[in-house]
């Protein structure tokens, strides 16, 4: 997954590509096919598709990654560079959300139901978020230097509107992606560009707690009531 951080970091330095007033830009449509490492197709995988190579200002919206049922919901989002993400705790017990990703390190401390904390993301890249108390909780925030990012529908179909004309790269990402998935696209104003992408999904990566240690034995298993 770290390769994405490098790619995104470099892309963050990309040019500012603004559409002229009244120019609707181009449209990039396509499908993302997700398979397991053994080739079996994965139905309904959560996939984020995003463009790289140009920058756009962020919106005012605040994305949400909630903590619910000892899971992050959703566990994969994309935001525009410098946008904020809210982390509400909807569980009746404590969570300690943190990230040690080089693009954004933070420790929200422990907080309980009804409380929420926010963080801004001033660097493009892939930010892995975990809970220091519950090792089974993992989420990924993709920070993109432009607003051309979306979630594919359950069939893998996606549409990116208003893409500035030019030669860009379109990326697709699902949690547990094992290698880069991207395609070069040539976008023209008022035209539609079609692209097909496929992702091979691997096993969930093991992670360490916020102190860089393995989680204690016995905390790995989620025991539902």
């Amino acid at each position: 997954m770290r390769w994405l951080a490098v790619v995104a970091g470099v892309a963050a330095l990309g040019v500012g590509a603004q559409r002229a007033a009244g120019d609707p830009g181009g449209r990039v449509v396509g499908t993302v096919k997700v398979t397991e490492a053994d080739g079996k197709p994965v139905a309904g995988a959560d996939v984020i598709v995003y463009m790289m190579g140009f920058s756009e200002p962020p919106s005012d919206q605040v994305a949400t990654v909630a903590q619910k049922g000892r899971k992050f919901v959703p566990d994969l989002i994309s935001i525009t560079l410098n946008e904020r993400v809210s982390f509400p705790n909807n569980d009746p017990f404590l969570h300690n959300v943190f990230s040690q990703s080089p693009e954004r390190q933070f420790d929200l401390g422990s907080y309980t139901r009804g409380e929420k904390k926010e963080r801004q993301f001033p660097k493009a890249g892939v930010v892995d978020v975990y809970c220091n108390i519950h090792p089974e909780m993992a989420a990924t925030i993709i920070v993109v230097p432009n607003r051309r990012h979306t979630r594919a529908d359950p069939t893998g179909h996606f549409v990116l509107e208003g893409v500035p004309p030019g030669e860009w790269k379109v990326f697709a990402y699902t949690r547990r992606s094992t290698r880069p998935t991207s395609a070069q696209v040539s976008v023209k104003s008022g035209a539609e560009t079609t692209v097909e992408l496929s992702i091979v999904r691997g096993a969930e990566l093991q992670h360490l707690n916020k102190y860089g240690e393995k989680y204690k034995e016995g905390t790995q298993v989620y025991k539902d009531k």
Binding site: R2, W3, V6, N96, S110, Y111, L208, K210, G212
Partner: peptide, 30 residues
């Protein structure tokens, strides 16, 4: 890639000084 995968410390340090009080504080419920 190797630099990204290297284990990192959790924080830059709770106090940078010996005699002086720093401005770092614990996270909530820490």
């Amino acid at each position: 890639l190797a630099a990204c995968l290297m284990p990192r410390t959790a924080a830059a340090g709770r106090s940078f000084y010996g005699w002086l009080y720093g401005t770092e504080v614990m996270p909530e419920r820490g």
